[in-house]
């Protein structure tokens, strides 16, 4: 395929896409851990807050949320500041906005994954841990977290796959990731099909590589466990 010397742009875009995806995933995992802790906590207000978070986020399209955060937040902050008699000009960085918004959205999905993983831990082990006199912190660190990852991994892999695809949306806020780079290259060369097809294959490449990686990670976290005999 003749890319007329624009191939490097796709490559640069791919790097940004991977960077956005990895950073957003880190945000999502952190929010997911906090969210699942809140959902399972004894405090009613924490549970309500977590419930509102997951309900609202899953009911609104990602694109609209990105637009709200990128265009809505500065205006909101500016008008609040104006009301208080300040004058500030706020310009959000597209990379940070993209990472935070996507991380925030998929944090809601990660919350559900982690909640399921916490609940999958054998309650007998938690009882045993408190019986031998472990503090809550020790229990979390030694019993809950190490096992939780094993239960959470398949679900997190799923979140990652969808998250990678969602990064294409941050191209609407002018971040130079794979989609926008292909768009720019296409405008210059007038070869839309060629460039978008290349972008498609690059996304497919990420998907395939993630699947392979997930397979090995799952095998690694399940080491030492007897596979079920069917």
């Amino acid at each position: 395929m003749d890319l007329q010397g624009y191939g490097w742009m796709l490559w640069a875009g791919l790097e940004v896409t991977v960077m956005v995806a990895v950073s957003a995933m880190a945000v999502a995992v952190c929010l997911g851990l906090i969210g699942s802790w809140a959902k399972l906590s004894k405090s009613t207000s924490a549970r309500t807050a977590a419930r509102i978070y997951t309900t609202v986020i899953r009911g609104i399209p990602e694109l609209l949320l990105i637009l709200v955060v990128y265009y809505g937040t500065p205006t909101l902050i500016q008008s609040v500041a104006e009301g208080l008699g300040f004058e500030i000009v706020l310009d959000l960085n597209p990379f940070a906005t993209g990472v935070i918004t996507i991380g925030f959205i998929y944090g809601a999905f990660a919350t559900e994954v982690f909640r399921g993983a916490f609940l999958a831990i054998d309650p007998g082990q938690i009882e045993a841990a408190s019986a031998v006199g472990m503090s809550r912190q020790q229990m979390t660190r030694r019993i809950i977290l190490p096992q939780m990852w094993r239960f959470a991994l398949p679900g997190l892999g799923n979140v990652w796959m969808v998250l990678v695809k969602a990064t294409a949306l941050v191209s609407v806020i002018q971040l130079d990731e794979l989609m926008r780079m292909s768009f720019v290259a296409m405008s210059a060369t007038k070869l839309p099909f060629t460039f978008f097809l290349c972008a498609t294959f690059l996304y497919l490449g990420i998907t395939i590589m993630s699947q392979v990686l997930q397979h090995y990670l799952e095998a690694w976290t399940n080491r030492g466990l007897k596979p079920a005999k069917v």
Partner: peptide, 13 residues
């Protein structure tokens, strides 16, 4: 395995 946005662009553009 690919984002919907790419598919839309692939067909429209």
């Amino acid at each position: 395995g690919t984002p919907l946005l790419v598919q839309i662009f692939l067909i429209y553009y």
